[in-house]
Simulated assay, not measured.
Amino acid sequence: MDVKGAVPIGGQPVEQVVNVRRPRSVIAFACWFALGVGVAYLGFVIVEKLRTIVYLLAFSLLIGVTLDPLIGFLQRRGMRRSAAALLTWLGVVVLLATPFVLAVDAATTQLPALIKSVPELIRNAESHLGVLGDRLAAVTDAPARGSVNPTEVLDYVLTGGALLFTAVTDIVVVAFLSLYFAIELPHLRQLALKAVPASRQVRTARILDELIVLVGRFMLSTVAIAILVGLSTALWALAWGIPYPVLLGALVTVLSLVPVIGSTVGGAVVTLVALTVGLPTAIITLIFYISYRMAEDYLIQPRMMKYSVELPGVITVPSVILGGAMLGVPGALFGVPMALILRVLVRELVFPATDQA
């Protein structure tokens, strides 16, 4: 309201009256700010309490988006969306269940032997390290406990059973939720577009479709690379007599789902296990993983990413590290997809706005 030329009220200028009312606006602003902070904190607490559910929904949605390129391929061949999604989902379940069944079988048959042979494996590794092995032997030769507490054993068994039940339940929930998201992804897309003003729906639809395609193709490439490095690990361990090749291959496959860091950690684990066979075997295994890493970075990954999207290492590595630091393993898995989303949003929204400014 313009106060110039206004009639004084009660002998005081209007400007003085406005000045008297300013503290009320500050108080109102403080109240609204406190309310906003309270709502944000309440939302944070709710998300923290429901973190497991949020993770399951996020994993399921990511799997549904990952399957979307394969479903679209089958749809272009004349199949209905539901049939294509179900067929793709069943194929992925079989593909993922096979290495897990092999890993579980290897664990049940080889893990007891591995536990019994741990002291011998440690002694073999120490014997191949010379002076460093003697120092490690002095540390590891601590006196063993004289008796086993049955209460602790029962507690470990119950805790392990509870964790196994929770893991199986989460896997089943994620599996069926991913099937739902794979079938209903177009409907969810339309529902999301309804929340956008009509004048911006065309541009939003284009950005959303690009995000779905990029994330889906990137995740498919990541899974293919992880399966390749896991299979290579199992064959390498089998060829060089490294113990537990199937178990190591499954472990490296799971670790390689985390971009950049996962395969490196898996290679380090396999190299340490190879040390139990002999120092030359460990050195050759280390050279193998370094060579494979270079081949993956310069040959395999560029060819795979040619069909998806290529992110520079200056974005990929910090995304994985930052996601892992904030949310652990789930954050590391979601780090690169979130970087992809931010990259598209910055290119489509921020850059055009700065060019018009």
Rank of each mutant, 00 (worst) to 15 (best):
A142F: 14
A234M: 06
L121P: 02
D355E: 15
G323E: 12
I46K: 08
Y292W: 14
Y298A: 09
P259A: 08
V173S: 01
V18F: 08
D134H: 14
G43A: 15
T52N: 15
M219A: 12
R135Y: 11
V260N: 07
S127T: 07
F218R: 00
W236G: 05
R76C: 06
L74P: 00
L340R: 00
L96R: 00
A34Q: 04
G328C: 06
D141M: 10
Y244A: 06
V317F: 11
S256K: 08
P69R: 00
A40D: 06
S319L: 04
T166E: 12
D141E: 15
A137V: 06
V54T: 09
V260C: 06
S256V: 12
R189L: 12
S232F: 06
H128E: 14
A103I: 05
S127P: 00
R217P: 00
V174T: 12
V223Q: 02
A137E: 13
G11D: 02
A167Q: 11
R203Q: 14
T264D: 04
V101I: 10
A195E: 07
M305V: 14
F288W: 10
Y307M: 06
I287A: 13
P318I: 12
A113Y: 08
L87W: 05
S319H: 00
D141G: 09
L61W: 08
L345N: 02
I27V: 14
L214A: 12
L158Y: 04
A205N: 05
A58Y: 01
V7I: 15
T264S: 09
Q12F: 09
R24A: 13
